[in-house]
Structure formats: C-alpha cells, structure tokens
Computed example of a mutant assay.
Amino acid sequence: MSERKKIFICSPFRGDMTGNSVRAAGYCRRAYEEGCLPIAPHLLFPQFLDEGNLKERADGISMGLELLMECDEIWVFGEPTEGMEQEIWFAVEHGIHVWFRDGKGEKEA
C-alpha cells in the first residue's frame, strides 16, 4: 500500500452551510480522484460541535489546525473567509504547500 498525499481542503463553511458542505464534499472527491487523501474538518466537526458556540468553534478551528500539521498540502477553494485565512496563514508559517484552486486555473502561494 502506497501512502497517499494528504490534502487539507480549505473552503467556506459559514453562511450557506448546506451548500458549502456539498461543495466541500465535491472538493474532497476531486482530491480523491487525483489519488490523494482529502482532509476536511469542516465536514466532520459540525457533526458534533456547535458552530454557533464560540468556544466550540474555536476548538474546531484548533483541532483542524492540528490535522493540517499532518498534511502535505492545503488546497484553497473560493474566496477566503476569516477561518480560512487562519488556516492559510498557519500553513504558510509551517511550510505547508498552499494551492489556490478554483476550477479556472491554479496558483501557488
């Protein structure tokens, strides 16, 4: 068994949580189809954390950053939100490769 590249999926969640979850699942599918292992905390943590509770939201972001430390790359989809910006800056500070992917082309950070 070969080890797959671990990809942290960074995309909007707040606002249209249902639509954003569907889009995030699609981004995960894209990573999977490219032979990668997608990591999307914003699809998992809302299953048991309350996004409206400030402490639980902060805990979710913190746990997501712990997962990000184990990833090879972060793929950013959509216009960065406040939470996404935290993930992007964390990746940059820790030397994790950042790709901005939007379907119209890609660029590295």
Rank of each mutant, 00 (worst) to 15 (best):
E56A: 08
R4T: 10
E82Y: 08
F8W: 07
G105V: 10
G52F: 04
S62K: 11
I7S: 11
F100A: 04
R23D: 11
C28L: 03
A25V: 04
I39W: 07
T81C: 00
I96V: 11
P41S: 08
Q47M: 12
E51C: 05
E56G: 03
H42N: 11
D16Q: 09
I88N: 00
D72E: 10
I7Y: 08
E34R: 15
E66R: 14
D59F: 07
Y32Q: 08
I39C: 12
M84Q: 00
T18A: 14
D102K: 05
S2T: 10
L49W: 08
I7L: 12
A24M: 15
S2G: 06
V22D: 06
R30T: 11
C36Q: 07
F13Y: 15
H42Q: 14
S11F: 02
I61F: 09
E85Y: 02
I96R: 01
E87V: 03
F100M: 10
E106Q: 13
K5N: 11
E79K: 12
R57A: 13
A109N: 09
K55R: 10
L67W: 15
P46M: 04
M69S: 14
L44M: 07
P12F: 00
E33A: 09
Q86T: 08
R101N: 09
A58K: 13
H94P: 00
G78F: 00
E56N: 01
C10Q: 07
M1Q: 09
I39D: 04
E51K: 03
S21Q: 04
F45H: 14
L54G: 03
M84V: 01
G35M: 10
Q86K: 14
L68F: 02
K107S: 11
E85M: 12
I74W: 00
K107V: 10
E73T: 06
E93T: 06
W75Q: 09
P38E: 06
E93S: 11
Y32E: 08
Y27P: 01
H97G: 03
L65C: 05
D59Q: 10
E85C: 06
G78D: 00
F13D: 01
K6I: 10
F90G: 02
L67P: 02
E108F: 05
G105Q: 11
H97W: 03
G95P: 02
E106F: 08
C10H: 07
E3L: 15
E70Q: 14
L49Y: 15
Q86Y: 07
E66F: 10
E82D: 11
F8Q: 06
M1R: 11
F90K: 13
I74S: 05
A40K: 00
A40I: 02
P41I: 02
A109P: 08
S21Y: 02
I74Y: 05
F100Q: 05
Q86H: 09
E56R: 04
R4M: 13
F77K: 00
E87Q: 05
W89E: 15
M69T: 13
I96M: 01
E82N: 05
E70T: 15
N20Q: 02
L68V: 03
E87I: 02
S21D: 05
S21T: 14
M84R: 00
S11H: 05
T18E: 15
M17G: 02
W89Q: 15
Y32T: 13
G35D: 07
D50G: 02
K107Y: 14
N20A: 03
